[in-house]
């Protein structure tokens, strides 16, 4: 296993990086809503949404390629939905017909439309994770979920679990790597055989990993207790996120986008 840095955070300082994580999360959700607001076959609405991505990318100093690459993970899904639309949408005029396959102009348009929509959403959320560290994200989510405390939802514990999980990903990766090497040294074979055989070969990796995770959890709990941890009661926070002018600008730009899309929809 190579050096796997978790998430896809792009380390730099920029306008977007400095924005409050909570605002960024909310804006990402608002952006998804905006993309869904675009009426079918409204080219200008998509152009506006796309321009927003381009603009944010420029202000975040993240290379555009990195943003685009985020689509790679769901490429299959994109192609699948596009193919579904092309072959099974029978509305509109037929442009191509061969035996049982009929392709209509509406189907093609709709496929293009869906591809655009998914890509915009993915790129929008990728910008969030590219410009926000996992810790900031966890803190942001904690802060945003804090109203749930009223219904006794353990928001603080939830956020702590998330940030500890993030903290331990690289450690457990290293551990997995070590176990794989140790088992290989004892003659374990992970590469040959059919799928079932290979899945079975994972057991000698998973069991030691599980056992050691429990031991780690136990030790971590002791270490946390030793450092006076006693739940959220009476606890303060070192890093408080603050709303700055950047967040207001971001908010205004996105509000502008939504108004624009709604306006274009009406035209």
């Amino acid at each position: 296993m190579k050096d796997v840095s978790f998430g896809q955070y792009y380390n730099t300082t920029s306008f977007v990086h400095k924005m409050d994580a909570r605002v960024k999360i909310l804006l990402s959700i608002a952006y998804i809503v905006a993309v869904f607001l675009v009426k079918e076959f409204h080219f200008y609405g998509f152009l506006a949404a796309f321009l927003f991505i381009v603009l944010t990318t420029i202000f975040s100093k993240v290379p555009f390629f990195s943003v685009l690459r985020s689509v790679k993970g769901i490429l299959f899904f994109v192609i699948f939905s596009a193919v579904l639309q092309i072959f099974f949408n029978t509305a509109g005029e037929v442009v191509f017909s061969w035996k049982f396959i009929t392709i209509t102009d509406k189907g093609l348009l709709k496929a293009g439309f869906i591809v655009c929509r998914i890509m915009m959403i993915v790129m929008g959320t990728a910008l969030l994770t590219l410009t926000t560290t996992p810790v900031e994200l966890a803190d942001g989510i904690e802060s945003l979920l804090s109203p749930l405390k009223l219904i006794k939802f353990p928001v603080h514990e939830f956020a702590l679990i998330m940030s500890i999980a993030l903290r331990f990903i690289p450690t457990l990766m290293e551990e997995t790597d070590r176990i794989i090497k140790a088992q290989k040294a004892r003659g374990a074979d992970f590469e040959s055989g059919n799928l079932i055989k290979r899945a079975k070969a994972m057991i000698p990796i998973l069991i030691p990993l599980l056992v050691s995770s429990f031991r780690r959890a136990d030790e971590l709990a002791d270490a946390m207790d030793a450092r006076c941890y006693s739940g959220s009661k009476g606890r303060t926070k070192y890093k408080k996120q603050r709303i700055t002018y950047r967040d207001i600008i971001g908010f205004l730009v996105l509000a502008g986008l939504i108004v624009g899309i709604v306006f274009l929809n009406g035209v």
């Binding site: 940030s163 500890i164 606890r235």
Partner: peptide, 16 residues
Amino acid sequence: VASIVEDDVAFGPENI
């Protein structure tokens, strides 16, 4: 507990 050194050192003081 934390992914950044200063955040980890802050854990104890936050708790008290």
